[in-house]
Design a protein around this nucleic acid. Structure first.
Lengths: 183, 183
DNA sequence: ACCTGAACACCGTTCAAGT
DNA sequence: ACCTGAACACCGTTCAAGT
């Protein structure tokens, strides 16, 4: 019955996938692994640490090859990968954004955005601001989209999905602001 | 010992102000009012409904007069008011952003942003995208700033506040993207 | 209108002890 | 290295009943 850290993590991600964040409790995770809740603490020091590992796994799972060469397309590629990775998992946006906000992980996308901007000739402070602005946009948009999607699927609300503003349109708004500064 | 809904709400806000979101529980709120937790449910159907009222109160408390006439300055005014209102209260950004994301309230700022953009001649879809992009930026920035501030004040982290990107700089990025489309 | 008392069904976390 | 068993200190919510 011995589990490794990776077994516990895999089951945590599966639990999130199938039943959402509210089902991802230490007690439920333990019982589904046939183990006491306290046994999880042998592998993860806290639920926060577990969630950080889950967030990193969500991002790793959503990795896609990079093809674009121009910086605006590179930015779009990173943002789109991040968005799709979060949307691919129940409550994925909530988990990744929370883990990022508390500085516990999920730092990959922002450092990649910063690198793309630095390579495009942006000074460090502009790269820092712009990468975080893009990240906040992707988080906010994905969180809203996911919340609306789930509200509809639960029959709680009949607001149609089409009323949500388009993802790429908002992205272009920020990219255009950047273009003016990097020209 | 009879309390009105407004008494309960006022104490909930005070509790948030002084001890943060983790202290805002139905049980603690009840005990500080000298009442059973179940008594709160006479005034609010659920904790979510209470939180929505708290978020609206945070925004109402932070209201400031509008002075700008040009639309870019109007946008900045609304975003700055929203930001300061959230920062003025412990975990204010978390509460307001969560309530907004779940469609339970805090809709004032976004509809005001949409109105400013419509008056500036933006088509409805651009106004919708841009207002949400701005909102996501303000939420994300404020949440990060507040989280970092609290981490520092708790001595948990020594990352200095100055390393945070400037609020107005990110705002200008989006405004410039808009300027190109409204010229 | 406003509240009590008691229950229901949960949480995260700690820790001595076991194998 | 991995886990048990039991406890500690909590949660939100419901509901019949009281004033």
């Amino acid at each position: 019955m011995a589990h490794r850290r990776s077994d516990v993590l895999a089951h945590a991600v599966a639990l999130l996938d199938t039943h959402g964040l509210s089902a991802l409790t230490m007690r439920r995770l333990g019982s589904e692994l046939g183990v006491q809740p306290s046994a999880i603490y042998h592998h993860f020091a806290s639920k926060q640490e577990l969630l950080a590992a889950v967030a990193d796994e969500i991002l790793a799972r959503g990795a896609r090859p990079r093809t674009a060469v121009a910086w605006p397309d590179r930015l779009r590629e990173v943002c789109t990968e991040l968005r799709l990775a979060m949307l691919a998992c129940t409550d994925g946006a909530d988990v990744v954004a929370t883990v990022w906000a508390f500085g516990l992980g999920a730092a990959g996308p922002v450092s990649e955005l910063e690198k793309v901007l630095a390579d495009a000739g942006a000074p460090a402070d502009l790269a820092a601001v712009a990468s975080r602005t893009l990240l906040h946009y992707v988080f906010g948009h994905a969180f809203e989209e996911q919340t609306a999607r789930q509200a509809v699927s639960l029959g709680a609300v009949d607001r149609p999905l089409e009323s949500l503003p388009d993802f790429d349109l908002g992205l272009d708004l920020v990219v255009d602001g950047l273009r003016a500064r990097l020209a």
